[in-house]
Computed example of a mutant assay.
Amino acid sequence: MNPMSHFIKRINKENLWDKTLELERNDFLKTRGISDTNIYLVIHGSLRIFVIDKNEEHTIRFGYKDNLIAALDSFLNEQPSDLYIQALKKTKVKVINKAKFKSFMTSSPENQDIWMSILENLVLQQMERERDILTSSPVERYNRVLKRSPQLFQEIPNKHIASYLRMTPETLSRIKKS
């Protein structure tokens, strides 16, 4: 079992979720300038995490069924963040606050090890993504994401995938056709 699934099962077993939220398409879970120290489990639907720079949106991550998502910078430093989290379709999430999460995470060495494994994997994914954006062609970026996350192409609209891959929607469309 992968560490994320195992961790979620442990949280579910302890019944630690504070509440459940339902979001309509395009609703915001978090907006810029707000501190958000919650972690969310996506029950169904999909979300994107993005920033706006000079009126241009840059998608950083996606979350869909069985993913944990957070405004990680705000979660870690408890400061307002420039990140937005937006539902891309009708979405349901469970919420756990930081205090309860930290208490659970530190309640056993196994929980700490699993969480550390999840964070290490997240850092490695982010490093791979940065390297891809800096050094890979659009076709290479597309192929790598298709191999790593084929579900993404079923869950997420092409314009947001293109933003994530740092290409225009037209370039993504051409690559998909070839």
Results as ranks from 00 to 15, higher is better:
N97T: 03
R129N: 06
E140Q: 05
T59P: 06
S103P: 05
L41M: 02
H58W: 04
Y64K: 01
L146E: 11
L68E: 04
D27H: 11
H44Y: 14
N111S: 09
E120T: 04
T106D: 00
D113G: 15
T37H: 03
A87M: 06
E57C: 08
L68K: 03
N143P: 12
E57Y: 06
N111L: 10
L76G: 07
G63K: 02
L134E: 00
L146V: 12
M127E: 15
I49Y: 07
L21H: 15
D53H: 13
E14N: 13
W115E: 08
S35V: 11
K100V: 05
E22V: 10
S136Q: 02
K100M: 05
S5C: 13
S35Y: 11
I8A: 05
L76E: 07
S108M: 04
R129D: 01
K13H: 10
V42H: 06
D53N: 11
F28P: 02
T135A: 08
A87C: 09
R144D: 10
G33I: 09
L68N: 05
M116C: 06
H58V: 06
P80L: 08
Y142Q: 08
T31V: 15
I52L: 11
K30P: 12
V51F: 09
L83F: 15
Y64W: 08
L134T: 00
V51W: 11
A99G: 02
N67L: 03
D66S: 06
Q79A: 15
Q126H: 05
R48F: 03
R10G: 14
P138S: 03
V145C: 12
L124V: 14
S81D: 13
L47T: 13
M105P: 06
I85W: 12
R61Q: 12
V123Y: 02
M127S: 09
K90N: 10
D132C: 04
F75I: 03
T31G: 13
S46R: 00
I60N: 11
K89L: 01
Y40I: 05
N26T: 08
S107H: 02
Y84D: 07
A70H: 02
S74Y: 01
K90M: 12
R10H: 14
G33E: 14
K19W: 04
K90G: 00
G45S: 07
T59I: 04
L41Q: 10
D132Q: 07
K102W: 00
T135L: 05
W115Q: 00
V139E: 12
L72C: 05
L16M: 01
A87G: 02
S74C: 01
L68T: 03
Q112E: 04
K65T: 09
L124N: 13
I52D: 11
N15Y: 00
S35P: 07
I11T: 05
D18I: 01
I52K: 09
L88T: 00
M116Y: 12
K98P: 04
E128N: 15
Q86S: 03
S81A: 10
Y40T: 15
M127Y: 13
L119K: 01
S136M: 02
E130Q: 09
R61C: 10
G63L: 00
G33S: 09
K92G: 03
N38H: 06
K147R: 14
Y84H: 12
T106K: 01
E110N: 14
A99Y: 09
W115L: 00
S117A: 12
L88M: 00
L29C: 08
